[in-house]
Nucleic acid binder design. Structure first.
Lengths: 213, 213
DNA sequence: ATCGACAATGAACGATCATTCACTTACGTC
DNA sequence: GACGTAAGTGAATGATCGTTCATTGTCGAT
């Protein structure tokens, strides 16, 4: 082990630390002032780092914001993976599918996944045409693993319950329901009840799949 | 009739015309560049009017954007009133309640109410902390006439169907479903199917209220 | 024809923006 | 301890921001 590599490693850690500090500061600034109010001066003040740091690590301010969007995508995916590790892997039986959906409901409204910061930033990024065109997936509903998973569960449960409706439409309804409740949280974070949100999802699932919720 | 008053009236019309042109131009600019990219220069270019016009009619750029938010609230309310005039007034019978909900579904996804412009602007305004604090109602879901109306319909239909779930939660589910489908439109306006969206709502309503959808 | 009233104009202004880059600091290597 | 390398710094820069205001244009009243 050459100490040259150690140095490079330590330096790497320092760089990444500053990167993270900048990303965190940017998130805080957007939280308070929106994307339009996220200026270098404010990010500098919030982070306590020097002015030139932003361009040093992120080339440009726009790139910093774009990387923040990507960073949050990773965080969401991590939360999602955490969820998948807790619930049963397979959805072949309706009981398992129901348990997976139930776990999804609870995860999607947990403090770790849905909070003022994540909601504000999600909606802030969605509103920016450039970031939307980027398609980081963070703001996506369709075409995600999450969507595929819900679809699988709905197919299994519809078959088991003899539900007459199109499973695809049922899945889309559940996905949209989650989206809509997120929107409600974003609009009224202090009045929002996580427990009530989960119960609303359960009530809906019970209507679609009697006997499993 | 004094011609002095006529003049004042004609001038008034010209003023309002310019106001409207500016509001429309601002909407177009936000559509393309977001709120953060809505600059006086761009609005001037889009409108074809002179630079000083904005401050003349709206005092400040921020005020122009705020008035645009209010303007769009009025437009949404107009569409909503149009909807109420078509469906039966009363919701005392489950059939009427079902018809009202059905009319709501179709209205909420009609071109007049939901289009690229309205969706983009809604999400743009929702993302701005200042405009959100303003509470124009345009971006609101809770505490609106719309919400109250859906709640009434759900209470009537739940009672008629003997639905076991809490009517309040059912109402919230339907409101959130609409919100979530709007979000889907916003994310994928070109892939979105209005007919499919209505059917998803119907599928959900059928699950909650068997026999009425 | 002249005037008053008000809308409209756009050059000019100071503030603030993102970005640059010459310079300093930190640290392992030799 | 001198050197090389890379990170960190912040004053300076030019571009662009929103706003102002002296000036011009318009039109009915007199």
């Amino acid at each position: 082990m050459t100490s040259a590599e150690d140095t490079r490693k330590k330096r790497k850690v320092d760089k990444d630390l500053h990167r993270e500090v900048l990303l965190d500061a940017t998130a805080s600034v957007i939280l308070r002032h929106g994307v339009s109010g996220a200026t270098i001066s404010r990010i500098q003040e919030e982070s306590g780092l020097s002015r030139g740091m932003i361009n040093l690590h992120f080339q440009s301010k726009d790139n910093l914001i774009r990387e923040l969007a990507i960073h949050m995508t990773r965080e969401y995916n991590a939360a999602w993976q955490n969820f998948t590790s807790q619930a049963p892997e397979e959805v072949s039986t309706p009981e398992h599918a129901a348990a997976r959906l139930q776990a999804l409901f609870e995860t999607d409204f947990s403090e770790a996944v849905l909070n003022k910061r994540s909601a504000r930033l999600t909606f802030a990024f969605r509103a920016e045409p450039e970031l939307q065109a980027l398609g980081t997936g963070y703001t996506e509903t369709r075409g995600t693993d999450l969507h595929d998973h819900v679809r699988n569960c709905c197919h299994v449960l519809c078959k088991a319950c003899g539900t007459q409706g199109d499973p695809e439409k049922v899945a889309m309804a559940i996905m949209s329901l989650l989206e809509g409740l997120w929107t409600d949280f974003h609009a009224h974070p202090d009045e929002f009840s996580r427990g009530n949100a989960v119960e609303i999802c359960q009530t809906t699932a019970r209507a679609f799949f009697p006997g499993y919720f």
